[in-house]
Design a protein around this nucleic acid. Sequence first.
DNA 1: CAGATATGACAAC
DNA 2: TTGTCCTATCTGG
Length: 294
Amino acid sequence: MPEGHTIHRLAAHHHAVLGGAQVVATSPQGRFTAGAARLTGATLAATEAYGKHLLHHYQGGPGGGILHVHLGLYGTVADGPGQPPAPVGQIRLRLVGGPAATADGSPAGGPPATAGVAARQHWLDLRGPAACELLTEAEADALRDRLGADPLRDDADPDTAGGRIRRSARPLGALLLDQTIVAGVGLVYATEVLFRAGIAPTTPGRRLTADQWQRIWADLVTLMRIGVRRGRIDTVRDEHLPEAMGRAPRNDRHGGEVYVYRRAGQPCLCCGATVAAGVLAARNTYWCPTCQPG
DNA sequence: CAGATATGACAAC
DNA sequence: TTGTCCTATCTGG
């Protein structure tokens, strides 16, 4: 699940269901005991996504702080109304009071709960994360400073990212995954955006023109915004969708329609050539030898 | 039911 | 480059 679109989606959702409310935090596995104690009684003031990093800003209570979560390869966050299921996650946040969520699911702002406001019950479980820790403001600044341009953030600086890419001899398939250059792009988006650009993942960054980078960046912004909306990665143009081509829709756990990601050995949706697979910088990569000439 | 694998990242060679 | 983290899911026997 977790490329940048997933994290941005979670940040917005968590603000909608827990924003402005006091929380009770527990550490069922005992790996976040001190952090949970500092969060309990604090109020979730804001949520933020930067690349694949999720930040919860807590104020008040016994100290508050910035909860930093990175899901890594297989971390998940689940949440829901009412009583939580059996405590198994690394961290659990339980809403104990706050303004009622708006009907359309938009962020519930306003002050914390006051007497007479019906308390919501909402739980959140974090399981299998690569990182779950409390940061200071300075540490959060340092985290943002070491991340590159996030196509889903308004403050992104694609020119700096493009400059670094176009001065590098490393292959584009690795450069797009370098979170200090571009933040939030993972294997699926990197693989697919290069297919859509008609550029092989082995191409050195310095062979990319400024115009090509501009188009790749714009495509990432477009694709990842769709990903946030739909909660899945779709990169296939209308004319190559299953309905348009009379083929069966993709039906694996990812769900999205893609051109080459994990389609090794299958025919390219554009030209029919066999999709190739390889390993680049310790990550799987896929491409069409015809549509993406090296 | 054991083993492989996964949209990730980092430390240690 | 390889190993490790650590969870869920899918595969083959």
